[in-house]
Nucleic acid binder design. Structure first.
Length: 561
RNA sequence: GCGCCUAUAGCUCAACCGGAUAGAGCAACGGCCUUCUAAGCCGUAGGUUGCAGGUUCGAGUCCUGCUGGGCGCGCCA
C-alpha cells in the first residue's frame, strides 16, 4: 500500500515537472509515513512541504497541484490536504486488507528482505573472559547481540556471530593463582589468598574438579585436569576450559549460540600480533619512549598516544585487539559490529586508530560499535548486587533461573542500548498484565485458542472463503490492526539498519495492543461464514507476525497460557 | 579537568534518519465476563520533553552553553 502511494506521488511529481510547475532537478526522496492519527487517514506525506521552496509555491498550493496530478487508483479512497500542507491518504479497505493474504502466503518469511544482498557481516558480542560466570551485563550484550544477528540475517545479510576471549593474559594468571590457592585449601579470608584473586565460590568448584581429575569440553577442545597442585600451566588450562564450559551452559540456558569462538592466544600462536607490530613500525607510526613502544594514535583522532609494548616486553591488550580486527577484515567482513558494554568505549577510537595506522585500506569508522549502558537489578525496589556463586555480581544464570528465559531476554533487549537499564525482578516475574512479555505472548495464545475453537466447532479456517471476504474487515479496530501489520517489514528493516533491537520489542507491544483491542471489539466466531473466515484470517496474520517478531527476539510464542 | 552516553506523565519507557494535538504500560479513579482465554478491553486524570539560547515553514529530535546522573580517562582488559 505504501509503495502504491509512493508510485502515485512519483507520477504526480513527473507530471508537474513536465508542465514546468516543478523544477526538473527536484528529485526528492518521497517519504510516505503511516498516519499517527486516524483522522489523518492511513498514510501521509510531507512532500508538498519539502518541495514548496524549490517550487516557489506555498506548501498548500503545491499540495493542491500534486493532488490534482495524482493518477486515479482503486487503492485510494480519499485524499485530503491538511495542516501546513500534508497530503493524507485514506486507503480502500481491500487495499489495506491485502496485507492479510500477503502475510498468510509468506508465513515465517513475512518481514524478511534481501536488502543485505548476502553481504558478509560479523557481529561480535559477549566476549567475556573465562574468569567466571556471565553477569547481567553480559546478558544484556547477549540479548542485544543475538537479536542484532537475527535482524541482520532477516534482512539478507550473511551473518557470523562471534565470541572473542582472552585465554592467556594477566587476568588468566590471576584466575590460575586463585584456583591454585583453593587447591591448596585457602579461602579469600586467609592471608595466603592472592591479591585481587577471584573470590567467588565457583573458584572452589574449579579447584575441586581439578583435584578430581575431571575432563571438560569447551570450544571443541577437551581438557583433563592434571590434579597436580603445583602444575600452574595445567591449572590454568583446566580453569579456562572449565569456566568456558560454564559460560557455554549460561549461553545455552539463554538460547544464544555463536558461529565462532575466537581465542586471543591464537593471534600470538599464528604470529599475527608480531606481524601487526612490525607493520605499524614499518608504516612509521611508532616511537620508543620510557622503555616502551608507542603508537602515535593521536595522528588518527585519539586523545593520547598508546603504549603497544610495555617496558617488560609484553604487549598491551590493545595490540592483539588491532590484530584481531585486522583479521576480521581479512576474513572478508566488510561490516563488523562490536557489541560491548559502554565501560569499554575508550577502545573504540583506539582500535580504529590502530587499524588506520596499518594502512591496509580499512575505511575510517570501521568497525561499527553498539555500546550498552549498565544494568541495575532490583528486587522489592532494592538493588541486588551479589550472587551466591559469583560473589561480587548478579549472574545471568540467577536471572534466568528466577524469571525465566523469555522474560530475561525480552527485558534485556527491550530498551535502547544507550539507556541505563533497571531490571526489575518482581516485574519480570509477574504473570500479570504488568508484564509486556506476557501481554505479547497472550495475544499469540489467544489466536491459537480461537483457531482451536473453530476446529472444535467444525468451522475450521477456510482460506478461499477468507480471501473472498477480506474487504469486510472494515471496522476501525480491524483497519488499525492491518495497518500495524503492514508496518512490520519496515520496522524490521529500520531496526536492523539502526542496530536497535528494542524497536522490535516496542512494535510487538503496539501490535499486541491493537490485536487485543480488535479481539474485544469484534467476535470472530460469528455465524456469517464469510465474515468469520475473514476475521480468522486477520487473527492468523496477527499471530504470524507476533511469532515472527518474537523469533527475532529469541522469545517463545506459546500456543496456550 | 577532559571524553562518551543520558535527562520525556508519579514510576518504567516509546516517539519511524525535522512533521500535524508528544504516545504506551504500571500506579490512581470509573466501567466491561450467561459470548472465542479478564494474563484482556473501554473511559477519566496525568506534560513548559532538565534549563537558556540558536538554526527553519516546522524542533523531544539538529547546533551552542549551562545543570543533574552514568561510564571512561593505566606500560589493566
Amino acid at each position: 500500500m505504501k509503495e502504491t502511494i509512493i508510485q502515485l506521488l512519483d507520477d504526480a511529481v513527473a507530471t508537474l515537472k513536465q508542465r514546468g510547475e516543478l523544477p526538473a532537478d527536484a528529485n526528492p526522496a518521497i517519504k510516505v509515513d503511516p498516519a499517527r492519527d486516524k483522522a489523518h487517514g492511513d498514510y501521509a506525506t510531507n512532500l508538498a512541504l519539502v518541495l514548496a521552496k524549490p517550487a516557489g509555491l506555498k506548501p498548500r498550493e503545491l499540495a493542491d497541484k500534486l493532488v490534482a496530478a495524482l493518477p486515479a487508483s482503486d487503492a485510494v479512497r480519499q485524499v485530503e490536504i491538511a495542516g501546513p500542507g500534508f497530503i493524507n491518504f485514506f486507503a480502500a479497505t481491500d487495499a489495506i486488507a491485502g496485507v492479510v493474504s500477503a502475510i498468510l502466503d509468506a508465513g515465517d518469511t513475512f518481514g524478511r528482505s534481501l536488502k543485505g544482498a548476502g553481504e558478509k557481516v560479523q557481529v561480535e558480542f559477549v566476549s567475556a573472559n573465562p574468569t567466571g560466570p556471565l553477569h547481567v551485563g553480559h546478558g544484556r550484550g547477549a540479548a542485544i547481540g543475538d537479536c542484532l544477528s537475527r535482524l541482520l540475517e532477516a534482512t539478507g545479510f550473511d551473518v557470523t556471530s562471534e565470541f572473542y576471549y582472552n585465554d592467556a593474559g594477566a587476568q588468566i594468571d590471576n584466575l590460575m593463582r586463585s584456583v591454585k590457592a583453593r587447591v591448596h585449601g585457602f579461602t579469600p579470608e586467609d592471608a595466603e589468598w592472592p591479591e585481587d584473586g577471584y573470590r567467588g565460590d565457583y573458584i572452589a568448584d574449579v579447584a575441586t574438579a581439578y583435584l578430581a581429575g575431571e575432563t571438560v569440553t569447551a570450544d571443541d577442545r577437551e581438557v583433563t585436569a592434571a590434579a597436580d597442585p603445583e602444575d600452574e600451566a595445567a591449572i590454568r588450562a583446566f580453569a579456562v576450559a572449565y569456566l568456558r564450559r560454564e559460560q557455554d551452559l549460561d549461553l545455552k540456558a539463554f538460547e544464544v549460540e555463536f558461529d565462532v569462538y575466537f581465542l586471543e592466544s591464537s593471534l600470538y600462536a599464528e604470529g599475527r600480533v608480531e606481524e601487526t607490530v612490525e607493520q605499524l613500525i614499518a608504516n612509521g607510526h611508532t616511537y620508543e619512549a620510557d622503555g616502551a613502544l608507542w603508537l602515535r594514535t593521536t595522528a588518527f583522532g585519539d586523545d593520547k598516544d598508546r603504549v603497544m609494548r610495555k617496558s617488560d616486553g609484553s604487549y598491551t591488550y590493545f595490540v592483539p585487539d588491532v590484530a584481531y580486527h585486522h583479521n576480521k577484515w581479512q576474513r572478508g567482513f566488510t561490516r563488523v559490529i562490536d557489541e560491548q558494554g559502554a565501560d569499554h568505549h575508550s577502545t573504540v577510537t583506539r582500535v580504529r586508530a590502530g587499524l588506520q595506522a596499518l594502512e591496509v585500506g580499512i575505511p575510517q569508522g570501521w568497525p561499527d560499535y553498539v555500546l550498552h549502558q549498565m544494568v541495575l537489578v532490583t528486587r522489592s525496589g532494592v538493588e541486588v548486587k551479589l550472587s551466591k556463586r559469583a560473589g561480587s555480581y548478579v549472574t545471568l544464570r540467577d536471572l534466568i533461573d528466577e524469571v525465566g528465559r523469555d522474560a530475561t531476554r525480552y527485558f534485556l533487549a527491550a530498551r535502547r542500548a544507550d539507556s541505563q537499564l533497571t531490571f526489575d525482578i518482581d516485574l519480570a516475574r509477574s504473570q500479570t498484565n504488568d508484564n509486556p512479555v506476557y501481554y505479547i505472548q497472550y495475544a499469540h495464545a489467544r489466536v491459537c485458542s480461537v483457531v482451536r475453537k473453530a476446529e472444535r466447532d467444525g468451522q475450521a479456517f477456510d482460506h478461499a472463503t477468507a480471501m473472498a471476504n477480506l474487504e469486510r474487515l472494515d471496522a476501525e479496530q480491524e483497519k488499525a490492526l492491518m495497518n500495524r501489520l503492514a508496518r512490520y517489514p519496515d520496522t524490521v528493516e529500520r531496526a536492523a539498519e539502526a542496530r536497535e533491537p528494542h524497536q522490535i520489542a516496542q512494535y510487538l507491544i503496539d501490535l499486541a495492543s491493537d490485536f487485543h483491542t480488535c479481539y474485544n471489539a469484534q467476535k470472530v466466531m460469528v455465524d456469517d461464514a464469510g465474515l468469520r473466515n475473514a476475521r480468522l484470517a486477520l487473527g492468523l496474520a496477527a499471530r504470524q507476525v507476533i511469532s515472527n517478531g518474537l523469533a527475532l527476539l529469541g522469545v517463545s510464542a506459546p500456543e496456550e497460557m
